[in-house]
Structures are given as structure tokens and as C-alpha cells.
Amino acid sequence: MKVVVIGGTGLIGSKLVTKLGEQGHEAVPAAPETGVDTLTGEGLTEVLKDASVVVDVSNSPSFADDDVMHFFRTSTTHLLRAEAGAGVAHHVVLSVVGTERLQESGYFRAKQAQEELVRASGIPFSIVHATQFFEFLKGITDAATDGETVRLAPVGIRPVHSDDVAAAVCRTALGPPVGGVVEVTGPESFQLDELVRDSLAAEGDPRRVVADPEAPYFGARLGRTTLLPGPGARPGGTRIADWAARQR
């Protein structure tokens, strides 16, 4: 089966292409460096020829509110239009647990707009919601840093390894369209500020973490469970302590 992976050279996309290939499928990475640009539509007709499944794990190069909305709306519109012309039978998109609860954030408003386009397209679809990746915790920390102080809301989080996300997306892509959302999460629950405090201490980072219920998360205020998945989420098997030890 031919599976086209939009964003197939990135963190999740490259892992997904490998996993699909290992299972005997023709996995085609599609990205600007391979001649496919969803923002302009360049290369889409050619790469989607004979494709059964398209998986979109692409991300905006800029997280500025207007830029990210333009990216997801424009690229998704071009992609879905090309898929309809090519007769693609299953569209899979990777999104984020809590997207619908984080609409104060421009990034998550754009992800919600992307999901709505997919739902309205008429193409059979599956939406994979993942909790935040282990690899993104540094970005969360840096975004919350002012000088030597890191302000984070004391809320629940269940981060997940990118390998486990790629495995879940692969499993979804090879199955029937679900017509809704499936969730993937890490195996352990933490409090966000405590997790970052422990991580910085383990790395010898002198920054001080302050628990602040009003601290924004990429522009959105958080409730205790905003970032947590529902009870049906499928947990990955990688523990964050094991991953962090390998990184060090």
C-alpha cells in the first residue's frame, strides 16, 4: 500500500516512514526538500498518484498567530483538494490532546481549524491526538522562562515519547478510518512544574521553577486537566526517566 507522509522528513514523519517501510508498505516522505510544498500545492498531484492513505504530520515553521493559521488552513485546503482528485481513501492527521480546550492560543486555534477542514472534507479520516512529546519539554520550559525564573501552571501532564506517537500514527494509518479522534499518551502522569523542576535539577540547570496557576501555556490559561487525555487514551511504553537517561 502506498502511504504519503506529509512532513515526512521531520521528527515524527521520519520515524513513521521507517515504521511503514518495515511493515512492507511504500512510504513516501513529502516535504519541501522532496519537492512537495503544501502551501503552494507544488508536487501534490504527482506524489499522491496511486496513494491509498495520506498522513499529515507537518507543522508550521512559524508559531506567530497569523502565520500558523495561514499555514494550517492553506496547506490543509490544498492537500485535501488534491486527495479528492487522487481518490485517497484515508486521511490521517496528527494533532494535540486538549486542542479544543486551548483556544486562547493562536497555535491551537489553527490546529482546531485544520481539524475542522478535515472533518468537512468528505474524505474518510482519522485524527490522532497526542500529549506533548518528551522532546518538546525543553521548548515549553524556554517559553516559560523570564531571566532565571520559569513560571509554569501546576497542572497535570502525561508526556509521550515521539517513537510511541509514530507507532500510534502508523497503527491508525494502516487501520480503517475512525471518523473521529484517537488519543495517545505517555505511561506516567506528572505535575508540569514539578516535572520541569526535576528535569532542570538533573541537568544542572540553575533556573528556578515557580508554580503559578495563571502562567500561560503558549498563550492559553490551563485548568488542572486541560493537557490530560481521556480514559480511552492508549499509553506508550517509554518512561520519561529512561528516555532522559539515554539523552544524558
Score class of each variant (00 low, 15 high):
Arg234Cys: 10
Gly219Cys: 14
Thr225Phe: 13
Pro206Ser: 04
Arg234Ile: 14
Pro231Trp: 03
Pro235Met: 14
Val160Arg: 14
Asp163Tyr: 12
Phe190Pro: 05
Glu214Thr: 13
Asp142Gln: 08
Asp146Trp: 15
Pro159Ile: 03
Glu183Leu: 03
Val128Asn: 04
Glu203Asp: 13
Ala143Asn: 13
Ala211Glu: 01
Leu222Asn: 01
Gly230Trp: 06
Phe190Cys: 02
Ile240Gly: 04
Ala153Tyr: 13
Thr238Gly: 02
Glu194Trp: 02
Leu228His: 01
Val155Arg: 04
Arg221His: 11
Phe190Glu: 06
Arg239Pro: 11
Glu194Asn: 04
Gly230Phe: 09
Pro159Glu: 03
Glu194Leu: 11
Ala143Gln: 11
Leu137Arg: 00
Arg197His: 14
Pro159Ala: 06
Arg151Pro: 01
Thr131Gly: 02
Gly232Met: 08
Gly180Met: 07
Arg234Ala: 05
Pro229His: 03
Pro229Gly: 04
Phe125Leu: 11
Arg171Gln: 13
Ile240Ser: 03
Phe218Val: 06
Ala201Gly: 09
Pro177Tyr: 10
Ala153Glu: 01
Glu188Gly: 13
Thr145Tyr: 10
Gly156Glu: 08
Ala168Met: 15
Gly236Leu: 07
Pro154Gly: 08
Thr172Gln: 12
Asp205Gly: 04
Phe136Cys: 15
Pro229Tyr: 00
Ala173Trp: 09
Asp198Ala: 13
Asp142Lys: 12
Ala168Leu: 11
Ala220Glu: 11
Asp163Leu: 10
Gly237Ile: 13
Ser189Phe: 12
Arg207Ser: 04
Phe136Ile: 08
Thr185Leu: 06
Ser199Ala: 13
